[in-house]
Design a protein around this nucleic acid. Structure first.
Lengths: 147, 147
DNA sequence: AGTATTTCGGAGTCTTTTCTCTGAATATAA
DNA sequence: TTATATTCAGAGAAAAGACTCCGAAATACT
């Protein structure tokens, strides 16, 4: 099937936005996330671990431990999260997978697709999780992709 | 990683465009395709078989057999190929995977992404393989995704 | 100090996608 | 009619992605 981002990346976005809804620095444990976001426990744990390594989150062990944003919510964009999890290859890669497709040697869909990519990227850079959190106060927070 | 279309779909597009470059009804064997497009033999064979089942291609067995377009090149759009291989879920699905995300109950990136999807779809519908074939007369036809 | 809670790190399993193989069926050409 | 070139069909192997498990380390609370 294949859609723009991996599952893991979708989950990461949901989790970070969830953290952004909380007060600054408030810690949230994996347990709460798995319940509220409906993401498998061990999987979301791993994802948060990854985000921590990338410096987007801060973690604390022990009772009352958990995860919190490492930066102000308005300084974390969707793009940052996508970059941390999936990388940014999609901003460059040819739709048809030609390795040598580029501006000076474009494949036949290069230009059209290049515009699309650009505008997707702009959207991702333009949305920070503080905005998303605001929209999301009414959390119809549920899980999984349907179809 | 995950990009908009599957590998199989990329390959399908390349193959169909390759056929469109040929004269009407000219048959091309799997062998030629695998060599020219650098796609694994048995894999491209399967893909062409799929496209045949979907009615986009015609096949002929035996010596001087092979595959050819089942329709005039200007009546096959990129969208048709994507539809045949990956399906069109991407035109509907929420970027974050919320199953109940929709126009009346949008997630926080719904509207932005809905516009993107729409414009991607328009591009796919707007490009037929005859146009692509024309662009591609200078075939820098090579293989695989790099990064 | 001891216990409970929580993340960390690595390895392991399951599923889907990508890619391979093989044996048959069919058509062409000599 | 025989040899050969080709697709067809389905099963199988390998790699990638999604998800699980477990033991260890850290911290807070009693």
């Amino acid at each position: 099937m294949s859609i723009l981002f991996s599952r893991q990346c979708e989950y990461a976005i949901k989790a970070v936005v969830y953290l952004a809804v909380k007060k600054d620095g408030e810690r949230v444990a994996t347990n709460e996330l798995t319940r509220r976001l409906n993401i498998p426990y061990h999987f979301v744990a791993k994802i948060l671990q990854n985000l921590t390594k990338k410096g987007l989150l801060r973690s604390a062990k022990g009772p009352r431990g958990g995860f919190s944003l490492a930066l102000p919510a308005n300084e974390i964009t969707l793009f940052d999260i996508v970059d941390a999890i999936d990388g940014t290859a999609f901003t460059r890669s040819c739709l048809l997978g030609f390795p040598e497709c580029s501006g000076k040697n474009p494949c036949s869909v290069h230009n059209a697709w290049a515009l699309q990519r650009e505008s997707i990227q702009e959207m991702l850079v333009g949305k920070n999780v503080s905005q998303l959190a605001r929209d999301m106060k009414k959390p119809e927070y549920q899980s999984r992709r349907k179809g």
